[in-house]
Design a protein around this nucleic acid. Structure first.
Lengths: 221, 221
DNA sequence: GCAAAAGTGTTATCCCTACACCCATGA
DNA sequence: TCATGGGTGTAGGGATAACACTTTTGC
């Protein structure tokens, strides 16, 4: 038992984990094993340890569910409506994470819960206020494509310009002109040719590129 | 005494309260009356009540210190480093608020603490990690001027274009061309003439304008 | 040789920037 | 009448958007 002179809320971190697969923006959900909302899908998350920074907690959840470390993680917003959890006052600090498509492992569920990737268009009903959190994360993602190199975080170490363009098209839900896209993305001076090529099928091989600053999201004008 | 099965952190809200006075961007600080950091300047803030939404808590702090209600308030970021408070684990949800210049009241200090407005260039040393919070709030403010109508929140109900331009110049710390500014701000279609004029001194009277959507910050492109 | 994706330039349009003088008023 | 801030237009340059054909490969 832990005692305090004044009442304290519980604090959790929840993580919206995005990736791109099958030409769709997908996110990872877990099926709740206990009450409340038992059996419903929800964002991965858990209580903040008192000896653990907020981001460290979010990263721990992320790694437990996906098995990947070192990916992009950013604080989104803190949700603290009085009745968002029926048990007690729970304030959640929400994060979102981007996973490169080649790092997805079909993870054995950690806590005997089911785990699944869902397309943004086929989300099930979510527990708590998690739909609101997902909506805000999606908005942020779309907005940040415009003025940062965030999209690179979905890419593997080497990628083609067509693959990169596809990421933009999938997230923004609109086709782009190939020539203008290439001119624009190269003018940013944020990627360089690796010198390698990739042969995919019955067509000309594509040059491979890498991000100049793999672990940093740059603000672009 | 309040008892929990698991340890809970304390949660506070802190508010960075901006206004513009004397051609300077200023913010409100209070002098701490108790330990820790007794006698040092800090952001207004306090513990979250369990029956009060986060924003409501921030707004309560804001109103207690400034006496103004209904002003712009936005969540900034949540700071939760393990040792940011020497007493116990304290997570703070930081907000920032913008006060129109005509609403500032020289407030009698609520809790026998001193209260003061400080220019961004003459801030004293701040308690806790409050300097970091102020820096982030300032960055957000500068960034949002570019792509939203946030600056209108500093304006009284009626204002001249020169006054509005001054707000941009003060926050962005750069002079702007008068004709280009007027063309740009009018093209946004976010303000309209009130029909009134103001005579200030020995010169032509200035037309007064009002924001079309006083209580909403629009995203502009 | 054919299907399929990779790669590549030019032109028109719009937006942003730079820039200087007259106007209305109070003293 | 003079000092002070209010108010107004145009032209050039840079960025954006539209648009079609050739190249390389696997089968």
């Amino acid at each position: 038992m832990y005692q305090y002179e004044y009442p304290h809320p519980a604090v959790t971190t929840d993580v919206v984990i995005f990736t791109i697969r099958d030409r769709q923006l997908k996110l990872l959900l877990i099926k709740r094993g206990g009450e409340p909302y038992k059996g419903q899908w929800a964002l991965p998350g858990g209580f903040v340890q008192l000896d653990e920074d907020l981001e460290a907690g979010a990263r721990r959840e992320l790694e437990e569910e996906t098995g990947v470390a070192g990916v992009y993680l950013e604080q989104l917003y803190t949700f603290g409506a009085v009745n968002r959890d029926p048990r007690e006052r729970v304030i959640t600090v929400a994060y979102y994470a981007l996973i490169p498509s080649d790092k997805i492992v079909l993870q054995a569920a950690t806590d005997a819960e089911a785990v699944g990737w869902f397309g943004m268009d086929e989300l099930p009903e979510l527990a708590f206020d998690h739909q609101k959190i997902v909506d805000m994360a999606h908005e942020r993602l779309v907005a940040k494509l415009d003025y940062s190199t965030l999209a690179f975080q979905f890419m593997p170490a080497e990628f083609t310009l067509s693959e990169l363009q596809a990421v933009y098209e999938i997230i923004l839900r609109q086709d782009m002109d190939k020539r203008n896209f290439r001119k624009w993305i190269l003018a940013l001076e944020q990627i360089e040719e690796t010198g390698n090529e990739r042969c995919d099928g019955p067509h000309r091989p594509a040059k491979l590129y890498r991000a100049l600053h793999r672990n940093k999201v740059e603000i672009i004008k």
